[in-house]
């Protein structure tokens, strides 16, 4: 089900439904993402005992995983090529993978290795990939404004490339969110804004943070089409995204999609989630399982297809993680490198 509030939504094209090949491909992408994050989960916690220390282990620091939110990433990115830009949040892996980021470089960055996207300087909240025009930020909502500039550049150069900016529902109460929507609509920039509503901003429920039931209403306030996808289902997202992406590519300007998704795990690893009131039966709401069941019922997927998806994902993930673990650790003597292109910083 989708709720639409689209002031003057212009000519809407785009296929109404994905075909079976696309369906299976989307399922496989979601499995790949989940498999990658499950591997991170294991390695993140493996060596943080006996005393759990956030700074210890092969993967130190904060770790925000996106299990449950795969439908958003896959449903959106299926409409994109790596020439399109994606800006993401502190919870970026699902989007990075769905957008086609090299798994090895992603894993190596998360493990803090010299072969990582940022040579171990950035870490999991600061992924910058020129090959896929992907970026993210640990400061919430701050991925929205740069998407304007990427869209601006694409437009000025006469291409039909677009920018997709993703943020959480908590971040939609940040000034940068509102300034960005206004400017995008005013200048008719080719941006698709995505809000992942997983009901929680750390421990604060949506009801305690947001004055309107749907951020699609806020899109209306800025004069752009807004659509809330109520189901955490990849095909529902895919359909809404198809409309918004077509609009952006064809000169129709920006739109906003809010997806009511699900945070299956903690806000960050180590989060005991004592505040959470919606955990009962949460495993039954896993969107990948749900999709698998529906594809099986539709006769699009069988045991062999599921097994292949999982085996292929595991092979790709194992390869990426092994690559990361085998990669060199950055030389501490190089800690001040890369501050500038051409100017050394005194140590």
């Amino acid at each position: 089900m989708t709720l639409t509030s689209s002031p003057g939504s212009s000519s809407v094209v785009g296929a109404a439904e994905p075909d079976d090949t696309q369906r299976v491909a989307m399922y496989r992408q979601m499995v790949l993402i989940r498999t990658f994050e499950e591997a991170l989960l294991r390695d993140y916690h493996a060596d943080k005992s006996p005393v759990w220390d956030i700074g210890a282990g092969l993967i130190p620091g904060e770790m925000h995983l996106a299990a449950g939110q795969e439908p958003v990433a896959v449903g959106i990115c299926d409409h994109l090529t790596t020439d399109d830009a994606v800006t993401a949040t502190h919870r970026p892996h699902h989007l990075a993978i769905a957008h086609g980021m090299d798994l090895r470089k992603l894993a190596a960055e998360i493990f803090g290795r010299e072969t990582g996207l940022g040579k171990g300087r950035g870490g999991h909240m600061h992924l910058f990939d020129p090959a896929t025009h992907f970026s993210c930020s640990g400061i919430i909502a701050e991925g929205y404004p740069p998407a304007l500039g990427q869209a601006f550049a694409f437009l000025r150069r006469g291409t039909d490339r677009i920018a997709v900016a993703v943020t959480g529902e908590g971040a939609a109460n940040q000034g940068a969110f509102h300034e960005t929507l206004n400017l995008a609509a005013l200048w008719k920039l080719p941006v698709v804004f995505v809000v992942e509503d997983n009901d929680w901003g750390i421990s604060v429920p949506r009801s305690a943070s947001t004055s309107v039931p749907s951020n699609a209403e806020r899109a209306a306030a800025y004069g752009m089409p807004g659509e809330r996808v109520e189901d955490n289902a990849v095909e529902a997202v895919w359909q809404a995204a198809g409309r918004a992406v077509d609009r952006a590519r064809n000169g129709g300007g920006p739109s906003l999609i809010e997806v009511h998704t699900l945070r299956l795990w903690g806000h960050f690893e180590g989060d005991a989630q004592g505040y959470r009131t919606d955990l009962e039966g949460i495993a039954d709401r896993d969107p990948i399982t749900t999709y698998e069941v529906s594809l099986r019922t539709a006769g699009v997927l069988d045991d062999a297809g599921v097994a292949a998806a999982k085996a292929d994902a595991l092979a790709a993930v194992d390869d990426a993680i092994a690559f990361a673990k085998d990669s060199p650790i950055p030389d501490p003597a190089q800690a001040t490198a890369y501050a500038f292109t051409d100017t050394e910083v005194r140590a």
Binding site: G61, G112, R121, G123, T336, V345, R346
Partner: peptide
């Protein structure tokens, strides 16, 4: 801390 952003990788961070 030298005038660089704080790096992620442990060895780099502890160097600054």
């Amino acid at each position: 801390v030298p005038d660089v952003p704080i790096p992620y990788a442990r060895g780099l961070e502890h160097a600054v």
